[in-house]
Amino acid sequence: MIATFGVIAIVEPIAYYPILGRSAMYQAFMIGNIANKLLPAALIAQTDLDERPGTRRAELIAGAAIIGAVYIHLVTLVVLVGLLGTWLVGSLPPDLIGLARLYILPAVFGAVTVQAVVTMRNVRITVIAAVVAAVITFLVVPLVPALTNFATAMAVIISIVVAWVARSRTDAPPAAPPSAGH
């Protein structure tokens, strides 16, 4: 368990700091869904009021827009998920719920992996990470089952090291990539 929390504790902030940047970190940790919901709301409100990002006025408009977005989000969650969703799940047959439970992980990870690959737009690192993960999952873990719980931690660390050693030295520094999650 300590190993798990260690992995999360290390990977999550380090993975997201460079993506989110400073001010978004402060906001993201409480509200969540920054990239897909709060940023578009802020930009639309700034356009609506004819203000370009970067000014003090634009900052205040963004803050107000995020508040509007948060209220809509809270209402949606309470009504659709809290009331409607709970009722729906409660009224579905138990074997259907069991099936959803059993296969929800591959259903989430398949999509999220594709999203991460597309968001990162880096063929070299994608190939490295895929090969490292495949070697660990299909070779290392079956040979040394004791390492099962450390598979993800190992894949993350080895991917970082290999990607670093094999990085393209001619690439111009790309713009900050958009957030893939929070």
């Binding site: 993975a15 999220v112 992996t113 991460a116 990162m120 495949a134 670093w164």
Partner: peptide
């Protein structure tokens, strides 16, 4: 080195999700 800030998070995220996804295929 500007590469640190792009290579490290990308490799960490992709390494984690590929491993989680591939682990599902063995079930």
């Amino acid at each position: 080195n500007p590469a640190v800030m792009t290579v490290v998070p990308a490799a960490a995220l992709l390494g984690a999700f590929f491993t989680l996804a591939l682990a599902e295929t063995t079930k």
